[in-house]
Computed example of a mutant assay.
Amino acid sequence: MSAPGAGPAPLVLALALDDADQRHLDELRRRHFPPERLRVGAHVTLFHALPGEELPAVLDAVREACRRPGFAVEVAGARSLGRGTALVLRSAELDALRADLAGRFTPWLTRQDAQRFSAHVTVQNFVSPAEARELLARLSAGFVPWTVRATGVQVHRYLGGPWEAVETVPLGRAPGEPVSRT
């Protein structure tokens, strides 16, 4: 929803993850995010604000870009956000997907979305710097990288805090991968 005369709400694009990976990251976020500020689950934002009136063109571009196989993303460590903490993600495939989409969306990119992409999952935000440093130290102590599985791209409408799901576009299957008959 948007204010009368303001046009459709902006679109947020996020990486869709395997269900088990998503549940694990959601639990981390629930555990460490101030509950009164928690409006959405854990997410990997690809674009923060694409024009809502361009939804059909955005969906077409996402569908075209998602004609690539799903891929692994390394959770490589934790980093400070000043007043929060994030998990750092690394994946050449994720960078390529994001760059492909950015090229398609160039005329619509905000200053934030035109910046260098730095994939991460925010697990804590809106806390004191001391609280953020404490969580960063705990997450970093003995950190062992792991992988999550990218499965698609989620398109949402930004509703001033919460997001409204529009569509999740799945990534295609790998060459030679059999078609699921389920």
Results as ranks from 00 to 15, higher is better:
173 R>A: 01
179 V>C: 08
55 L>I: 03
146 W>A: 13
173 R>D: 04
95 D>F: 11
146 W>E: 13
70 G>M: 00
151 T>V: 08
132 A>V: 09
46 L>P: 01
96 A>Y: 10
37 R>G: 06
10 P>G: 05
42 A>K: 02
98 R>Q: 15
180 S>C: 13
93 E>N: 12
76 A>N: 09
115 Q>E: 15
114 A>V: 08
20 A>Q: 13
106 T>W: 12
113 D>G: 11
128 S>N: 09
45 T>S: 08
112 Q>K: 14
147 T>N: 12
15 L>M: 07
132 A>K: 04
126 F>T: 13
124 Q>T: 01
4 P>Q: 03
9 A>P: 15
128 S>L: 12
20 A>Y: 09
109 L>H: 05
24 H>Q: 12
142 G>D: 10
69 P>E: 01
138 R>T: 05
20 A>H: 13
16 A>K: 07
42 A>E: 04
166 V>Y: 01
164 E>W: 09
97 L>F: 00
1 M>V: 14
68 R>M: 06
172 G>V: 03
6 A>L: 10
49 A>H: 04
64 E>N: 08
21 D>F: 07
181 R>E: 13
104 R>T: 08
68 R>Y: 05
18 D>I: 03
160 G>M: 02
85 T>R: 10
14 A>D: 14
167 E>W: 03
110 T>A: 11
101 L>M: 02
143 F>Q: 05
13 L>Y: 08
1 M>R: 15
151 T>W: 09
50 L>M: 00
18 D>K: 00
14 A>P: 05
139 L>Q: 11
33 F>Q: 04
48 H>R: 13
147 T>E: 11
137 A>I: 04
111 R>E: 15
2 S>N: 15
80 S>L: 07
163 W>S: 06
151 T>P: 08
30 R>V: 13
113 D>R: 05
139 L>T: 05
177 E>L: 00
45 T>K: 03
115 Q>I: 09
173 R>P: 01
164 E>M: 08
159 L>K: 03
37 R>T: 09
87 L>C: 06
28 L>R: 10
113 D>P: 10
12 V>G: 02
127 V>S: 03
160 G>L: 01
50 L>G: 02
43 H>I: 00
43 H>W: 02
31 R>C: 11
156 H>I: 02
29 R>F: 12
168 T>N: 07
117 F>E: 08
149 R>I: 03
52 G>V: 01
22 Q>H: 12
105 F>Y: 04
87 L>Q: 03
163 W>M: 06
77 G>K: 06
169 V>W: 07
159 L>C: 07
23 R>W: 12
6 A>V: 01
23 R>E: 15
164 E>L: 12
108 W>H: 08
67 R>P: 02
179 V>R: 11
98 R>H: 14
104 R>D: 11
19 D>I: 13
11 L>Y: 09
111 R>N: 13
179 V>N: 07
31 R>N: 11
77 G>W: 08
108 W>L: 11
130 A>H: 13
138 R>C: 06
17 L>T: 05
47 F>M: 03
128 S>G: 14
